[in-house]
Design a protein around this nucleic acid. Structure first.
Length: 277
DNA sequence: AGAATTTGACCTCC
DNA sequence: GGAGGTCAAATTCT
């Protein structure tokens, strides 16, 4: 039995996805100010990860509607022919083990699902990319930018998920391995780039909402692309993501490409990195 | 020129 | 032997 109609489900899914994006942004802001050697800080990060994980499960449940068999699979982990009376905890542990066949030297420290696996408070260097069997998208491997200088063992993998339900947004599965032991100089604050002043500054909601930017919003799409400014070291998946957002914006604009007017506050809310010309 | 990314080869685990 | 993770040379970028 389905409690929601499809349209209602989609509204809820969109709201949860928005919530997830906000949580990722919050995480990126919190990580730089948390003490790295504090147990409570680790717990706080774990909780943030758990919240994101719960949101992902909720979306999956809504997408599957009333299919209770599928829902059981999501909530209880991967289960193989669940006719036997084994308890869910053991099965969950078994599922985790089967996923973590390798990486004996690095503990799995968390995972998130993000619309853009961008700024999580640290700088990363890509060291590999692999096409994973039965996956539509390749998996990228990153290690902490301080791995050479400070021997930081933290790594992460980023993989675009097969689908995100409504088909209009990409979701990336980000897995973290190992703890950061590097010091603060590897931490990247979420930044926006204002090409008018060529300066970098932290994300500022007030600035995003600034009415002084309104006239710039009327510029034609090509000029916006000319002025499109990416952060230095921005990974290719994020560049692709932002470009696709820009194209979606053009396609979906009710005013057409000559009278582009968009709400900067919405863009800033939905994307942790604001881009304007 | 140095840094960052890409990509094929190699290694490890099951 | 296959799949996933890492290395390192080649390539691209700044």
């Amino acid at each position: 039995m389905s409690l929601f109609r499809d349209r209602d489900c989609q509204v809820v899914i969109n709201m949860i996805e928005h919530q997830k994006a906000l949580m990722v942004e919050l995480r990126g802001m919190v990580i730089p100010i948390l003490p790295s050697d504090n147990e409570q800080a680790k717990l706080a990060l774990q909780l943030l990860g758990d919240i994101l994980s719960c949101s992902d499960k909720a979306i999956s449940m809504l997408e599957l509607g009333g299919d209770t068999n599928k829902l059981t699979n999501i909530v209880g982990g991967k289960r193989k022919g669940d006719k036997h009376s084994m308890d869910n905890h053991n099965l969950e542990e078994e599922a985790k083990e089967s996923v973590n066949k390798r990486r004996k030297n690095a503990e799995h420290t968390g995972s998130t699902v993000a619309q853009a696996p961008h700024n999580d408070g640290h700088q990363w260097r890509k060291y590999g990319q692999k096409w994973i069997s039965r996956a539509k998208h390749s998996r990228s491997y990153y290690r902490c930018a301080n791995s050479k200088m400070q021997g930081c063992p933290a790594t992460k993998t980023v993989q675009q998920m097969d689908s995100s339900g409504n088909g209009t947004s990409k979701l990336f599965n980000v897995d973290y391995y190992g703890q950061h032991i590097c010091r603060g100089d590897g931490i990247a604050n979420p930044c926006v780039v204002d090409t008018a002043y060529h300066s970098m500054e932290p994300i500022n909601q007030t600035k995003c909402n600034s009415p002084t930017l309104e006239h710039e919003a009327h510029e034609v799409q090509d000029e916006r692309f000319e002025n499109l400014c990416m952060l230095q070291n921005m990974p290719e998946y994020l560049i692709e993501f932002e470009l696709e957002r820009a194209f979606e914006f053009t396609v979906n604009s009710p005013l057409g490409s000559e009278h582009l007017m968009f709400d900067d506050s919405i863009r800033c809310e939905q994307s942790p990195i604001c881009i304007w010309g």
